[in-house]
């Protein structure tokens, strides 16, 4: 199984995880973390510790925005490697799909799927026509 770590500005990541559980039921190995009040290096240390705390598991890091402090901290933590991946632009669809597929898909294939699912979920909804 692949672990998930959602690192974002404010409480966004923590809340995303709680919404995933509201929809899917209790989920293990999916953690939300905030950057609030932390320097980039402090956040990087925290990420490093969370990733290495479970060496038997691969980890995907979900970050809110590319180029923000969370993405920088993830890179500084050395999280873009063979057993860990970094995805930016996290959204609910990505996380729901992650929980659905992380037990069966390998770390080499899952990130590409999640990026695609996350993109597919971004739509401009037109009105539904009568009839």
């Amino acid at each position: 199984m692949i672990n998930g770590l959602v690192v974002t500005h404010g409480e966004l990541g923590v809340e995303l995880v709680s919404v995933v559980e509201m929809i899917m039921g209790p989920v293990s190995g999916l953690t939300g973390r905030s950057n609030s009040g932390k320097s980039v290096s402090e956040l990087a240390d925290e990420i490093k510790e969370l990733i290495s705390s479970d060496n038997d598991c691969d980890t995907i890091l979900f970050i809110d925005d590319f180029g923000g402090s969370c993405a920088n901290a993830a890179q500084l933590a050395g999280a873009a490697g063979s057993s860990t991946r970094i995805l930016t632009g996290v959204n609910l669809a990505m996380l729901l799909d992650f929980v659905t597929w992380r037990e069966t898909m390998p770390i080499d294939e899952l990130p590409r799927r999640l990026v695609e699912k996350g993109r597919q979920a971004i739509t401009s909804m037109g009105p539904v026509q009568e009839g």
Binding site: M22, I23, M24, T100
Partner: peptide, 10 residues
């Protein structure tokens, strides 16, 4: 909604 189409359906 999601609890049905994702949560229970999974």
């Amino acid at each position: 909604h999601g609890q049905v189409t994702v949560g229970w359906s999974r």
